[in-house]
Design a protein around this nucleic acid. Structure first.
Lengths: 132, 132
DNA sequence: ATGGGTGCAAATCTTTTGCATCGAG
DNA sequence: CTCGATGCAAAAGATTTGCACCCAT
């Protein structure tokens, strides 16, 4: 039960998790704020920020390690790759198999420990391609 | 001659490029500012920001696509992978061979065009490991 | 000489923090 | 009850922008 890592399950935290699980996009903190706000009009942006940190630290949601000016969050916890549109910033999942054994390869080339990997693709998304 | 893409080669731009080429680290804009400042004490931080954008757009330097709060830049233009310490934020090159044909694989799984890839590893760097 | 580049300051955008109050356990 | 969580406002940190002056071409 991953929720156990949160000391208290407040209605704000519950709403954040639930809203995040309803979308397949990878919203930023302020997008999540707008989503949750419809249910809890008095929630504050700082509560959203604080809880996104808490919840991802507790493994309930995932803080994404992607380039860009804003942090992004993912309601799905399993490891998968992403592709980002260099034109509009849109971010999609890529449902391809993970590269096997790559962590072992890295260890041969540097002296870091407990290595994880994160693969991000960039390109032009279908919408931006259509606009051009 | 990649420098040609810059309309004018000012002494500020020259200094930024030269300083960036002297280091193998991946400095942030303000670190580059401090480096260049020793040569051009009157340069402003906004000039550094503006020129890092211009120079990377022109292919003279590389704007790095990595996670983190600050943008990072690389004097080397060739494609290579990076590893980031989750504890101290340090960023190193990983001198392993690039994954071949991965862009082709991605095209089978999504409808983006002109896809590039960027692989980032995370772990604990030797220094932080020693501290623990 | 002229239009892009610069330096400065102010604005913007995202995220974090201090603090009094609230409410889940 | 108690202490962690919240809301608000203010601060902090990174980056961008407006504008008058400067200088590379």
């Amino acid at each position: 039960m991953p929720l156990s890592r949160c000391v208290r399950m407040t209605k704000q935290r519950q709403a954040i998790v639930e809203e995040l699980k309803t979308v397949t996009s990878h919203p930023t903190a302020d997008q999540i704020f707008e989503m949750v706000r419809k249910r809890l009009p008095r929630i504050s942006l700082s509560t959203v920020y604080r809880n996104l940190e808490t919840l991802s630290a507790g493994g309930v949601i995932q803080k994404m390690e992607v380039a860009g000016t804003q942090k992004r969050f993912d309601g799905s916890v399993h490891h998968h790759y992403h592709i980002r549109c260099v034109q509009c910033g849109r971010l999609d999942d890529v449902h391809m198999p993970l590269i096997p054994n790559i962590e072992e390869t890295v260890r041969k080339y540097c002296h870091y420990e407990s290595v994880a990997h994160n693969l991000e693709f960039t390109g032009i998304c279908p919408d931006c391609r259509a606009d051009a």
